[in-house]
Amino acid sequence: MKLRSLYMMLAMALVLVLGACGDAGEESAASEGSETDEGAESEGSTDTVTFDNTFQVSPGDGEDSSAEGEEVSETVEVTKNPEKVAIFDLGVASTFQALDVQENIAGLPKGEGDTSLSDELSEFDSDEYANLGGLKSPDFEEMARMQPDLILISGRQATENNLTEFERVAPDAEIVYVGADSAAYFEDIAEMTKKIGELYEKEEEADQLVEDMETRIDDVNAKVAELEDDSILYLQTNGERGVSFHGQGGRFSYLYDTFGFSSADEYDEETDNHGSQVNYEFIANADPAIMFVMDRGAVAGGGESTPVDTLINSTTESASAVQNENIFELDPYVWYLNAGGYDTAMAQIEEVEEAVDNFTAE
C-alpha cells in the first residue's frame, strides 16, 4: 500500500509539473505573439505620412468669397506611394515634377483647352493625365470614373459644395489641403516639398531641392540689399477691372518679407486677394524705383489681357521706374494661376533675380 501511494504521489507531481510547463509555454507564446503584433503595428505605422490639414472652408465660390466658413483643423494619415492622385493645386503638381513622381498624378484641372497650364506644366497636356475641369469647377464625373486614392486641394476648391462632392464621388480618397499661405509662402512650399518627398520615399531629393531654393532666395535677397533704391510697386492688371496694388501684408507680401524690397506705398489690408484698386495718379505719387506688373486678366477665366505699356503714359511718366525703364512684366501663370509649388516658385525667384540684375539706377 505504501508503494502504491508513493506511485500515486509521483504521478500527481508529474501532472502538476507538466501543467506548469504548459502554462509557461502558453504565456511565452502569448508574449511573443503580442510582441510580434506590436512590431507589425509599429512597422505598419511607417507606411503612412501625417499631414496637418488646416484650412478655411468657404460657403461661396472659394477665392473670391468674402464670407467666412468653417475652420477645418485635423490630421490626415496618407498611405505612402499613392498611385492615383487628383491634384487641384497646380503649383503642387510642379512639386511632383521636381521630385520626378508625376507618374502618380491621375488628373488635374487643365481648364478648357488646357489653358490653365503654364510652360512649367506643359507635360500634363498629354492625354495620359485626365482633365479634371477648372480650378473652381471640378469635373466630378471624371473624378468618379477615376476613383483617386488622394485628392490635393487649395483655396479655390475649399468650398462646402466641392468638399461634399469630393466625398460623394470618391469616398475612399483622402482629402488634403496643400495651399501655400502668402504669409509663409516659401516656408510652406519647402514643407510641402519635404512632405511629398516623404510620401514617395524621396526624402534626400526633397531636402536637396529645399536647400537649392533657400540658396537662391538668399542670393536674391543679397542683391536686393545692394540696390540704391529698393522701393517697388507690385501692380496687377485686370482688364476692364483696372489696376490693383499689392503691398506688404497682402497676397504677394513675400516680395517684401522674403526678398527685402520696400513698398513704395502702404497697403490697405481690408482689400481682398485681388489687391487695392488704384489709378495712374497713385503710381505717379508713389514714385517706385521698380514696377512689377502681373497681367491677371490674361489667364483668369473670361479675363482680358492688358499690355504693360498701358501703364506708361503722361500721368505716370514722372515715376522713377518709368523714366529708367525698370518695369518688369511677370508671368501670370507662375505668380497667380500655378503658384505655390516648387518649380513655379523657382520660376518666380528667377524672374525677381532677373529684374534685380537688369535694374537701372538713375
Rank of each mutant, 00 (worst) to 15 (best):
A190M: 02
Q208A: 04
D181K: 13
L209H: 08
N161Q: 15
E165T: 14
A173S: 02
S182V: 03
T215A: 12
L152M: 13
A158W: 01
A173V: 02
E167A: 15
Y177K: 09
Y177F: 12
D172T: 07
A170E: 02
E203I: 11
I196Y: 01
V176T: 08
T164A: 13
N161H: 14
T164K: 14
A173R: 00
A206F: 12
F186N: 14
N162D: 06
V210M: 01
E198T: 10
A170Q: 02
P171W: 03
E211V: 11
T193Y: 03
F186V: 09
I189N: 00
S154G: 14
M192L: 09
K195W: 03
Q157N: 10
K195E: 07
A173M: 05
M213P: 03
Q208I: 00
E203H: 03
E201R: 13
I189M: 06
Q157E: 15
A184W: 05
M192K: 12
N162Y: 11
I175E: 02
D188Q: 06
L152D: 09
T159Y: 00
V178E: 02
N162C: 10
D212A: 10
Q208G: 05
V169F: 04
L163E: 03
K195T: 12
D218I: 08
D219Q: 14
G197F: 00
D219P: 05
K202A: 09
E203W: 04
E198D: 12
K202W: 08
E203A: 10
A180D: 07
E165L: 14
T215E: 11
E211R: 11
T159N: 13
D212T: 10
I175G: 01
D188W: 03
A173Y: 03
L163H: 06
A184Y: 00
E191I: 12
A184L: 01
E167H: 14
G197I: 06
M213E: 05
E204D: 13
A173H: 00
A190K: 06
D181N: 15
R168H: 04
E187K: 03
V176L: 08
A206P: 14
S182D: 01
S154I: 11
L163M: 11
F166K: 01
V210R: 06
A184S: 13
D207F: 09
A190P: 10
Q157W: 07
G155S: 04
E167W: 07
I175T: 04
P171Q: 06
M192A: 00
K202M: 04
G197C: 01
E205W: 07
A173T: 02
E203C: 04
L152E: 09
A190W: 09
E214G: 04
E167K: 15
I175W: 01
G197W: 00
A206R: 12
Q157D: 04
L209P: 05
D219I: 15
E165H: 08
I153W: 06
T159M: 12
V210E: 02
S182F: 00
A173Q: 07
A180V: 01
F166V: 11
A190L: 07
L199V: 13
E201S: 15
Y200R: 11
V176D: 06
Q208K: 01
Q208M: 09
Y185C: 14
D218P: 05
Y177E: 01
T215W: 11
G155M: 06
T215H: 04
R216S: 13
E167T: 15
A170L: 03
A180H: 03
A190F: 02
F186S: 12
R168I: 02
R156E: 07
